[in-house]
């Protein structure tokens, strides 16, 4: 690991000023992603600004009937919070499907949003990678790309965003509260992460020095008909090949509203409102689910090693919607898929 200087921030304003004023500075929270990447020289900040002492650890009720989650709330505390377990079980389930108990204890809400891709070549500094080294090329497109994206890819990059939590936050239409050198702003979740385009070095729409201070959940919905279905190479402690967060508002036997977000398939949690709209007013049958999946996956493209993801994603969407409609969410400890 390259050496760096270390500053412990006492206030949000101080932390923002310290990073905004130094292009080689970075925030550090749980460290579970950044320390790893620094060990490989994938990221080489010259200064770390420790934000873990900032007062961003509360989960508070909002006037709108939702919850405001401080950026430093650990992933495990969020998943086991009684209000989250009761009102946002989809979010709790997605968090518990990710990483390990130790990692979730250290990882923070803000850090989870900003974790970087697990593309093998991004980690391997001996290979070309436009995300790590803009302009150097993309080794994954013709290389081992089993874990890479099938949707929203570009000539420059086919990486995925690896988070499970973010897939649920996308489906629940959370918002992200940001503070920065130019003041605060609030972003819809769909506008937080971005597609790679010709600038894959940017995972999201934050400017340098901007800090996530909170994630806000709208008033609870979809308490009964939801699931987080995660498919991976082993039963636990592995990133998603494909995951689906599904939430339904039922109207008798029919579907009144659907939310479907996919993980493991794109540079951001993948949502297609037109695909969700297909289900409106339709019976909860495999045919309806398949029709929605076709729209969601339209234009999906494999790169060889990840061709299987297209059919896997289709089946995962159908299965997840069936689980959600039946009110039988995937259990994250017993991995039998119903």
């Amino acid at each position: 690991m390259m050496n760096f200087s270390y500053t412990r921030a006492e206030t949000v304003a101080e932390a923002i000023a310290a990073v905004a004023g130094d292009p080689a500075a970075r925030f550090i929270a749980g460290g579970t992603n950044l320390v790893d990447l620094m060990k490989y020289d994938v990221m080489k900040p010259e200064r770390l600004v420790d934000i873990t002492r900032l007062p961003l650890r509360e989960i508070e009720a909002t006037d709108a009937g939702g919850l405001r989650i401080g950026a430093l709330v650990p992933n495990s505390d969020l998943a086991y919070d009684a209000r989250v377990q009761r009102d946002y079980p989809l979010l709790a389930s997605a968090i518990l499907a990710g990483a390990s108990a130790q990692l979730r204890n250290a990882a923070t809400t803000g850090g989870n949003l900003l974790q970087r891709t697990r593309c093998y070549y991004f980690y391997d500094v001996a290979t070309p990678c436009n995300k790590r080294e803009p302009g150097s090329g993309c080794a994954a497109k013709t290389g081992v790309n089993r874990v890479n994206a099938i949707l929203g890819t570009s000539e420059a990059c086919i990486a995925t965003h690896p988070s499970d939590m973010c897939v649920a936050l996308a489906a629940l239409e959370a918002t992200v509260h940001v503070e920065g050198p130019n003041g605060p702003r609030v972003l819809p979740f769909a506008e937080f992460h971005r597609l790679p385009g010709d600038a894959p070095q940017h995972d999201n729409t934050l400017a340098h020095g901007e800090m996530v201070v909170a994630v806000e959940l709208p008033a609870p919905r979809f308490g009964r008909n939801h699931t987080y279905l995660k498919l991976r190479d082993r039963l636990s402690y592995a990133f998603a090949l494909v995951s689906v967060a599904a939430a339904l508002e039922m109207d008798g036997e029919g579907i009144a509203e659907a939310r479907i977000a996919l993980g493991g398939v794109a540079h951001k949690p993948w949502r297609v409102p037109d695909g969700e709209a297909v289900l409106k007013g339709k019976p909860a049958t495999p045919d309806s689910f398949g029709a929605a999946a076709d729209v969601i996956l339209a234009g999906a493209k494999g790169y060889g090693g990840n061709d299987f993801k297209i059919e896997l994603a289709r089946r995962a969407i159908v299965r997840a919607l069936a689980q959600a409609a039946a009110g039988e969410p995937q259990v994250q400890s017993d991995k039998t898929v119903n």
């Binding site: 270390y6 550090i28 460290g31 579970t32 320390v35 790893d36 060990k39 770390l48 390990s100 108990a101 130790q102 990692l103 204890n105 250290a106």
Partner: peptide, 22 residues
């Protein structure tokens, strides 16, 4: 790299991977 758990210790009673803690 946080991938095996052999470094697990308790920090203020909570288990974490010591290899990813500064």
């Amino acid at each position: 790299q946080g991938q095996c758990g052999a470094c697990t210790v308790l920090v203020n009673g909570r288990r974490v991977n010591a290899c990813l803690q500064l």
